[in-house]
Design a protein around this nucleic acid. Structure first.
Length: 402
DNA sequence: TCTGGGGTCCTAGGACCC
DNA sequence: TCTGGGGTCCTAGGACCC
């Protein structure tokens, strides 16, 4: 059966949403029509462009570009700070509105989702008319515009929603692939990023059509198990389903680039302590537990390191996560200036699954012993004094515990 | 003139077990 | 003496997306 899939994508999401907020709070001007960007300049050493208005896009300003470069292209540019709490609110409103029509929605990010129209077509009729109606409803009730791509699978719907912006409905049905998708540069294909595009171009593969017509065996040495998927994508083939179960996140993380590089391990630990509070608070709110803890460091040369550890029993305790992070930090520490500190949890479960059995008690003991060992290791390495100094942290809980 | 933050998925290699 | 092979789990790093 031929499927009908929508991809719904907010135009310049962060900028549009800030524009809506400003208008609702008495601001006269709609910043969507001005030279405006969303970015965070102060506090960070050099901010980057998180989102941009259509007028400033025309001056060649691109996402993720340093703000000072954008300012060179447009000296009159205005920078507005991101308001993530508001963005989450707008995102929820959008997905709630769409959910009125079907539960078959797969969120792809804060501002994008897929919708399977196939099972509801008999209720709402022609898909293109419905797409236009939905687009208008979003604009009129929420105050921002979206693009909607309509196609026979997720990949083509996603490609279609990207065609021209803003406030548009595009189709990319099977019979339109050769005409609408084949001429595009290969880097425009979903999942072909910078690195892959560069490799492909070296091989003389410049357009999506070139890739569609390339023999699998020729590319296999370069892209291994990704090869088949890549070539099928170029041909507009994608059988993946719209899965609402994917809306449940599998991991959480938080990282921060410091104002100045950190020299001391204790300073890094301080950041980790505060992040671990945030993350485990989120976990506890959602009644979820993490089985993997991961620490990320970026040095002054921008080299990234990660160390991770799998826990015996999933946890959402701040103490356990922080202690694990501390062990990992000790493993990784090279006495070099650190630019970014991050902490993440993975392998999330909805229950703290202890091995329910005779082994239960043993497992718990094991866990305790592991923690003891960890503490001992830390004490061995630094001595109690240093640890206490580390908790200039001002976080009494941490000091008490150590 | 430097270069954010939050995710997912894949790969390669090592440890460990049978 | 010279040393298998399959399976699973874990880790570190990297590519990609927004």
């Amino acid at each position: 059966m031929t499927r009908i899939i929508f991809h719904i994508d907010v135009n310049n999401a962060f900028l549009s949403w800030t524009a809506v907020w400003l208008l609702q709070n008495g601001y006269q001007q709609d910043i969507r029509n001005t030279y405006a960007i969303i970015g965070d300049e102060d506090n960070k050493r050099h901010g980057i462009v998180l989102a941009k208005s259509t007028p400033i896009k025309k001056l060649g300003v691109v996402t993720a570009e340093p703000i000072f470069l954008a300012r060179k292209k447009c000296p009159s540019l205005k920078v507005y700070k991101p308001n993530y709490k508001w963005y989450k609110e707008m995102s929820d409103k959008l997905f709630n509105l769409i959910s009125k029509y079907t539960p078959d929605i797969e969120k792809m990010s804060i501002d994008e989702c897929f919708l399977d129209y196939t099972p509801i077509k008999h209720l709402y009729g022609d898909e293109i008319k419905f797409a236009y109606k939905l687009k208008e409803e979003i604009k009129n009730t929420l105050g921002f515009t979206v693009n909607i791509g309509v196609a026979n699978n997720k990949l083509c719907a996603k490609m279609a929603s990207d065609f021209s912006k803003p406030d548009k409905v595009h189709t990319l049905f099977k019979q339109e692939i050769v005409e609408k998708m084949y001429p595009l540069p290969v880097g425009d294909l979903f999942l072909v990023g910078k690195k892959s595009a560069a490799k492909l171009e070296k091989l003389g593969i410049k357009t999506i059509k070139d890739l569609a017509n390339t023999d699998i065996n020729r590319l296999y040495p370069y892209f291994k198990n990704q090869t088949v998927k890549m070539i099928e994508s170029a041909r507009g083939i994608d059988n993946s389903l719209v899965e609402s179960e994917k809306n449940v996140t599998k991991g959480l993380s938080n990282s921060t680039t410091l104002n100045h590089n950190l020299i001391y391990k204790e300073e890094v630990l301080e950041i980790l302590a505060s992040i671990s509070e945030n993350l485990t608070l989120q976990l506890r709110r959602e009644k979820r537990y993490a089985s993997v803890v991961r620490v990320q460091l970026k040095n002054a040369q921008f080299k990234n390191y990660t160390h991770q550890m799998t826990l015996k029993n999933p946890t959402n305790s701040t103490e356990v996560v922080l202690k694990t992070a501390h062990i990992l930090l000790n493993e990784m520490w090279k006495d070099e200036p650190i630019r970014l500190v991050g902490l993440g949890v993975d392998g999330l479960t909805t229950e703290a699954i202890y091995q329910v059995s005779l082994f239960d008690e043993i497992e718990k003991e094991d866990q305790n012993r592991d923690l003891e060992e960890a503490l001992d290791k830390i004490k061995d390495k630094f001595g109690l004094d240093v640890i206490n100094k580390a908790s200039l942290l001002g976080k009494k809980r941490v000091r008490k515990k150590y």
